[in-house]
Nucleic acid binder design. Sequence first.
DNA 1: CTCGCTATGTGAACATCGTTAACATAGCGA
DNA 2: TCGCTATGTTAACGATGTTCACATAGCGAG
Lengths: 199, 199
Amino acid sequence: MKNDNYHHGNLREALIDIALDILEEEGSAGIKMRAVGKRAGVSASAAYRHFSDKSALLAAVAKRGFDDLTIALNQVRTKTHLSVDEQLQEMGVIYVVFAVEHASQYRLMYGSEAIRTEDYPDLAASAHNMSREYALLVKQCQASGVMKGETTTEILHVMWACTHGAAMLVIDGFISPPDIYQYARNIVNYVDAGIREDD
Amino acid sequence: MKNDNYHHGNLREALIDIALDILEEEGSAGIKMRAVGKRAGVSASAAYRHFSDKSALLAAVAKRGFDDLTIALNQVRTKTHLSVDEQLQEMGVIYVVFAVEHASQYRLMYGSEAIRTEDYPDLAASAHNMSREYALLVKQCQASGVMKGETTTEILHVMWACTHGAAMLVIDGFISPPDIYQYARNIVNYVDAGIREDD
DNA sequence: CTCGCTATGTGAACATCGTTAACATAGCGA
DNA sequence: TCGCTATGTTAACGATGTTCACATAGCGAG
């Protein structure tokens, strides 16, 4: 594991880290192959030994975002002192907060036309794993009788759409809430009221 | 109003039209200053007499999108045979369908990092007018007593976030509903249940 | 240990694209 | 009719993604 001179050791991961750093500092426009290479102490074209494309590098960054988000959502499901319904609300809040706190990366994960998700099966799989966290919890809510039980997919779509939209509107500057937690809690609360079983 | 040879007549609007055409045919990546100019029968740099920037051209395209969407939403409020609550649901469905049918343009209106909305007051105003259509209808719903009345903004955010998110997830390929109307109706229906006054 | 293969990195060059500068002309008003 | 301003042209520059020919490190086979 030399880190000097010629061979780098683990350039692939280093490049992803660097791209993430730049993303937070300058936004996605700052990610240039030359800049990433230079920061890694490597030439511009070195990255092409590990990524076929700039898109491939971005896809790797996006994948990491989905994986991190999956972990964050999964942790909510370990909070057994909350009811499953409360867990679902908490998950929605965590989702929105994660997105806003990693705004540029989140935009890369979703809105980026530069990444054709279907070209990166790993990325698609990570995205799917993420939404599965929502789905599993919705299923539990339905099983416990607190939630309308028609189809899990429908309820999942409602939660996902609302939290995704809430995050995106903030990220893109259309809504500027003073307190992101309260903003998220409020929206999730209304949505929850709509999908809960009438009692 | 000559259309030949040297002076074009109304190049500014023509360029916006052309950018819109390209947007539908090839997506936003296809909008290149040279390509837009060529299609207008004009040199690459001619566009810079009308737009300071490529961003400015894109902003004009986005603005037109918000204006068109505003008109579409406004028409819903003329459907007086529906109750205000039904109108709001209808508006949500129309919103999602418009977004999906104008996918590339809708992405430009929102997710585009290429456009800094704060640099284009006209664009910001058009976006604001659009959300006002939602807001006015929400207010009417609250006044008529069918809807929870805490604050109009909160309810507006819920509707906007959900329909925006629902549209984006479809546009970006994360959800592929067989019938877009049914998909939109379903989500809007759940949301409506959440914001309606309990009776 | 040595030969040689493969993975990894380099530097130069190319094509594309946004943008600008210097120049040209059309059309309108004084 | 003169000349000013708006509009358009061509050529060129700089940035950026990408590729190609070349160089070297590291590892396994013999």
